[in-house]
Simulated scan of single mutants.
Amino acid sequence: MKKSNLSLVFSLVFGAVALANPVDKETKEVKTDESTVTWKAYKVTGSHTGTVSLQSGALEFEGDKLIGGEFVVDMTTINTTDLEGDYKNKLDGHLNSDDFFSTASHPTSKLVFTKVEATGKNSYEVTGDLTIKGITKPLTFDVSIYGSKATATLKVDRSQYDVRYGSGSFFDNLGDKTIYDEFDLVVDLQM
């Protein structure tokens, strides 16, 4: 009987200590002015590259393990970096128009992590809800974290977000005017 009472006391004491000292959850805000989001879009005759700015962002950790994240992108900052002058201005304007991202009526896009699985010491497979033009779809991608830096590469299918211009998914006989549906985002975050 004494052993069982002693076991009960130890269980209560250690259980109370565990409850009093849970693993700390920490939210690390992203330094938006030091972080970059680079895009690359492809067409039959080549590609274009550019940037877009983060409006806000944070990663959530439990100890040193990534458990969540949320980001807002300022879509009005779409910037083409592989062109200059009138060609650049024309493409930037077109990307902001209703043919593409409708930034006047949808000035932000959002990504909210819904599932995070560790795949290595500093690597994670993340599934999140990506919202573009008010349409939300799930997206899975890899994230690597090293100290105060995080990187990710995402492949986004624009046709899922009603971005139709030049898309072979919506229009026939585009020939060399076809713009591929998938574009890449390379994200470098500083926390």
Rank of each mutant, 00 (worst) to 15 (best):
I135E: 06
E182Q: 15
D176E: 13
F171T: 00
N173Y: 07
T136M: 12
L185Q: 09
K137I: 10
K149V: 00
I135C: 08
I132R: 02
I135A: 06
Y146D: 07
D142S: 15
G134P: 08
F183L: 03
T127Y: 06
A152Y: 11
K177P: 03
Q160E: 15
D176A: 10
G166E: 00
E125H: 07
I179P: 01
T140D: 09
Y146W: 01
L139D: 10
D157N: 15
V186W: 01
E125L: 11
L130Y: 03
D129K: 07
V156K: 12
T140M: 09
S167Q: 14
V187P: 00
S144V: 12
S148L: 03
V163D: 01
S159M: 13
E182H: 15
S159R: 13
D172R: 11
I145C: 04
Y161L: 12
V163Q: 04
D184K: 04
S144G: 07
G128Y: 10
G166P: 00
Y146L: 06
G128E: 08
Y161R: 10
T131N: 14
G168P: 02
D129Y: 06
V143D: 01
K133L: 13
G175Y: 08
R164Q: 15
G128A: 13
V186C: 03
Q160H: 13
G168D: 03
V143P: 02
D129P: 03
K155T: 09
L139S: 11
P138V: 09
D176L: 09
T151N: 06
G168K: 04
R164T: 08
D172P: 07
D162I: 10
Q160Y: 13
G134W: 10
L174K: 11
G134C: 12
K137R: 15
S148V: 03
F141D: 05
S148I: 02
F170C: 04
V187Q: 00
Y161D: 08
R164C: 09
K133M: 10
D184V: 02
L139F: 14
D176S: 12
V187F: 00
I135M: 06
T140F: 08
S167E: 12
K155E: 07
G168I: 02
T178A: 01
K177E: 10
S159H: 11
I135S: 05
K155Y: 03
D129V: 04
